[in-house]
Design a protein around this nucleic acid. Structure first.
Lengths: 349, 349
DNA sequence: AATTTATGTGTGTTCGAGCACATTTTTATT
DNA sequence: AATAAAAATGTGCTCGAACACACATAAATT
């Protein structure tokens, strides 16, 4: 019934040779109508699927996958991605998979472009990238399609139907998750500041989506009465980034909640005791500085975007596509993990 | 440098035939000291790992994996496990993997035993089970080892070093997660009831671990002043389970928080408005009844144990072990997911 | 020295898919 | 009817690991 048939089996059943069966399956022509019918009759009956292992062995190709992501020196948020890469390399190197890591400076469009150009020139089988710069990333995607390179993205999205695989989080919804948490912690009313803290605003669309979701939650819940202010904080000239933050806190009235849309919540948590000690902070990402303040109860919750999982799943999806013809999933949304002092360790593996 | 060498390559380098190399690698003897040294010299230099795909093709075996879990008719908690099974079947049937599902009644030790006996008699390559009944499960594990059947567990643990793969959650820690959530919602003091709601107390150890973790959190935080009561609720004779719950609520004073250690939080949420409307409820598991009350804000948080993921990972781990010799991970702890109204949909896939 | 036994060593086949190439059969052309 | 061209079909090899088996060489026995 649900046996695993081989081409040889089919050939016998149809009374032809395996060569003919092969031609039918791959629609290579050079088959008489009579033989075609015989083979198709068998094929209809048994639902043949070629043995993926045999197929892979015959194919016996090495696959090069390049991954283009920001330098973790500039932002430790990307560190876990490196771990995922090593892990995948270890698991799949003996399957003929080679992964090449290429870094760019998250503050420099030029550095992204340069690294991307080099990658495309090296003609890998696939490129996985963080499309931090929209227009440039679209251009990369376009050139990949032309050069027959599979293209995948993670962490950010570009609206581009050429992308073969994309993974990330529903950022709008993650804003709503944060809003709900504030709602539960603060009750029916209060004042909350949304802080977009970023050195160079590369994450503009990221931050805006979160803000939209956050506001959406409070707008749709008519019983709630929250005052929400938005502040863009970037590095001011002549002083440190940290001082910029401190100056900001000095300038505002005490508030009930602070929602930091980037991984920089620790910069606020650092000064909270001095300026607005009762503020509840919710931020993003399990970078070590954030975890430190989480454990000190200066950050209430963190939302985890799991960059490591994003990279792991992207790479394994591509690999299984290359090796075993598993279809690429196109678009994957990861869960929005809520993190407190007690459950963060399990998310760090 | 990091090339993929074949046995043929090694044979050439060592100046012997592939048969000899094969005998060295598999320590089958019948090799002269001189040839042995030659081959080992090459082997040391290149770090040979056999091509897992070729190995798998040569092996060309069908693997039968049996899974023994409770009937979802009795408890919808298990429903997602069935989905995981279907998913794995679809993904791996063409790799020669056959999965056989066997159900038992979670209230009946006898039914577990009977199903387990039948499974062992059918001599599958592996059995994945929910070890709901400790002693019986230990016995199953023992007999699997004797019959050379790989044995894996999920959802519950048995302290048995014979288990080849086990997956679940750190239940003690999940109790602490719940405690922290109450702490954040209720502040520095309050009264909380721990409710063990279960029709037959099969989950005794489960519930106790969660209780221990929960209490541990409050005991270690000396600044907190919480009154914690524990109640075991099981079905009373002559009335429905639902009525039993109602009677309980009538009998107690209003409380600030209710921690339900099982998936039955909905039974409480159902009556909360009548008896103790301001109580905050935290429970376990994304069963549809719980989600309903979560959306109505009658349940504050749910903790997700992801039974689907447990089954999926168990099966894929076993499969990759059989097909590609990937080592079994032995013990896997899943993250303790915190769920509110905004992030539950992403966890249901 | 002749024959048996033990010990090495290499060759050839299998797993299933895929494709090149050789061979046979059919159709078209003189 | 004879030959050429085209179409259809089958055979055989490859991918890499694993192992059976045949063959060679050396050591032990009569």
């Amino acid at each position: 019934m649900k046996e695993n048939y081989t081409i040889k089996d089919i050939a016998e059943m149809a009374g032809v040779s395996k060569g003919t069966v092969d031609r039918v399956i791959h629609k290579r022509g050079k088959v008489s109508p009579a033989a075609l019918e015989q083979v198709n009759k068998v094929l209809d009956k048994i639902e043949y699927k070629p043995n993926p292992i045999a197929k892979s062995l015959k194919n016996n190709k090495n696959y090069n996958i390049s991954i283009l992501l920001p330098d973790a020196e500039a932002d430790p948020y990307w560190e876990p991605c490196y771990e995922a890469i090593s892990q995948v390399e270890n698991e799949f190197s003996h399957f003929g998979i080679k992964i090449h890591k290429s870094l760019f400076k998250p503050s420099s469009t030029k550095s992204f472009k340069k690294a991307a150009d080099a990658l495309i020139d090296s003609k890998p089988d696939a490129i996985l990238m963080v499309p931090l710069f929209y227009i440039e990333a679209e251009n990369v995607a376009k050139r990949c399609v032309e050069a027959d390179i599979k293209i995948a993205t993670f962490n950010n999205y570009i609206k581009d139907h050429k992308i073969n695989f994309e993974i990330g989080q529903d950022l709008f919804q993650s804003g709503r998750v944060a809003a709900k948490l504030f709602n539960m912690l603060l009750g029916k009313s209060g004042s909350i500041a949304i802080l977009h803290i970023d050195e160079a605003f590369q994450n503009a669309s990221h931050m805006q989506e979160k803000e939209r979701g956050f506001k959406d939650f409070f707008n749709l819940n008519k019983k709630l009465d929250f005052k929400i202010d938005v502040h863009n904080l970037k590095k001011e000239s002549k002083i440190t980034f940290d001082q910029t933050i401190e100056n900001f806190l000095k300038s505002i009235d005490p508030i009930d909640g602070i929602f930091v849309t980037t991984s920089k919540a620790y910069l606020i948590a650092n000064h909270i005791a001095t300026y607005t000690p009762d503020s509840v902070i919710i931020g993003y990402d399990l970078v070590s500085e954030n975890i430190k303040y989480l454990e000190e109860n200066k950050i209430a919750f963190l939302i985890h975007q799991d960059p490591k999982k994003q990279v792991y799943l992207s790479l394994t999806n591509l690999i299984e596509f290359f090796l075993f013809d598993k279809p690429l999933q196109e678009s994957v949304l990861l869960p929005i993990d809520i993190i407190n002092t007690e459950n963060f360790p399990q998310y760090l593996n």
